[in-house]
Amino acid sequence: MKKEYILEALIDNQISVLNRITSAYMKRQISIESLKLSKSYVKGVKKVVISSHTTEEVIGHIVRQLNNLEDLHKVDYYLPKRNNHKNTTDKTGY
């Protein structure tokens, strides 16, 4: 079922990483509802927050694919409600 999902990533301050993240949406024809790029608490690391409407299966796959990116430290998705937080970057979860 399609819902709003928020993707959050911590990336190095390098030109092509943001592009690689948005292209993961582009190639699946998912339109991005909002996108915010901001400083994080670590110098040289930026935080990306993207909201989009899609299914959990698709956003989960996007996150797992982005996890393999160079210059990306952490990526995660959750539903906008705070109590539904789900951590998918746990590598031992499989």
Binding site: I15, S16, N19, R20, S23, K27, L69, E70
Partner: peptide, 13 residues
Amino acid sequence: IGITIPVTKWNYQ
């Protein structure tokens, strides 16, 4: 760099 983003594992200028 822009053109090769979707076809590379990593790229850099």
